[in-house]
């Protein structure tokens, strides 16, 4: 069950709200350089898990290990310091700022109190190039003028810029067209190729099987199974998601 090179590991994690158990006994491994797809039905606990890992909802019980050492994620700042970046569906971009400005928001380099635009533009261009983001006309165009896929790319580049080790993406391809989805999936693969651990939360089975190296299934607050994507078929994944278990017939 335990991966030898797990970047982030959850061991018996619980999160309760009064009588409601949002997470119960979750054990999950996120290895570096791999894309882990987190799937599950509505209310299965995917969002709760993201919030716990990103420090918004500290767990009530259980351990969270980062590179094998126990860590306490009691605020978003703690997660950020470790190198965990969460990209929510709203992407948290400022429409009125350009791509460079968004990528550096909150971390702008300054020289004598003046924003160092040259350094920012250089390193933003470099990062976008490394991520093979090619479709934007100018990196000085405001984010408002970008397509959904391009915005997603900017959000990812922003995470890379901040030296993220683990990037959690919440439904990255929801509401995107075919070409845009293609672009984002490629980006996810590139990101993992750089050694970054990527956790993708998705409903879209086609996308999941296209991009994921590993699959983890949530059911009623519990992570009922996890393993290499090759061990799952679309049918078995759906059965895990809807019933929390698997029948022999489907498994074979």
């Amino acid at each position: 069950m335990t991966d030898t090179h797990s970047l982030l590991s959850l061991r018996g994690v619980y999160k309760r709200f009064g009588p409601v158990q949002a997470l119960r006994d979750v054990t999950l491994d996120i290895p570096a350089g791999k894309v882990t797809a987190l799937i599950g039905d509505n209310g299965a606990g995917k969002s709760s898990l993201i919030k716990t890992v990103s420090g918004l909802w500290p767990q009530d019980d259980g351990q969270i290990l980062w590179e094998g050492r126990e860590v306490h994620l009691s605020s978003p700042r703690d997660s950020e310091h470790l190198g965990i970046t969460t990209i929510y569906q709203d992407l948290a971009l400022c429409d009125n700022l350009d791509i460079v400005q968004n990528m550096f928001l909150g971390h702008e380099p300054v020289r004598h109190g003046i924003l160092d635009e040259v350094a920012m533009e250089r390193s933003a261009a470099q990062t976008l190039k490394e991520l093979s983001v090619k479709t934007v006309k100018s990196i000085r165009q405001p984010v408002a003028s970008l397509s959904g896929g391009q915005r997603q790319s900017v959000a990812v580049a922003k995470a890379v810029m901040s030296n993220a080790q683990l990037v959690i993406m919440d439904e990255p391809t929801a509401a995107l067209g075919v070409a845009q989805t293609r672009m984002v999936l490629d980006l996810i693969t590139t990101l993992a190729g750089r050694g970054v651990a990527v956790m993708v939360v998705s409903h879209n089975m086609v996308d999941v099987f296209e991009v994921a190296d590993r699959i983890a299934v949530m059911y009623l607050g519990n992570c009922v199974t996890q393993g290499p994507a090759s061990e799952f078929t679309r049918q078995s994944a759906v059965e895990w998601m809807t019933t929390g278990t698997i029948t022999k017939a489907v498994a074979s």
Partner: peptide, 24 residues
């Protein structure tokens, strides 16, 4: 236009939530 604080004012004006998540 040239200082961090100025830029943060533009960010907050457009999306306080994005600004907050950026640590502003």
């Amino acid at each position: 236009s040239k200082t961090r604080t100025g830029r943060y004012m533009y960010a907050v004006g457009n999306s306080p939530e994005a600004a907050r998540r950026a640590g502003i």
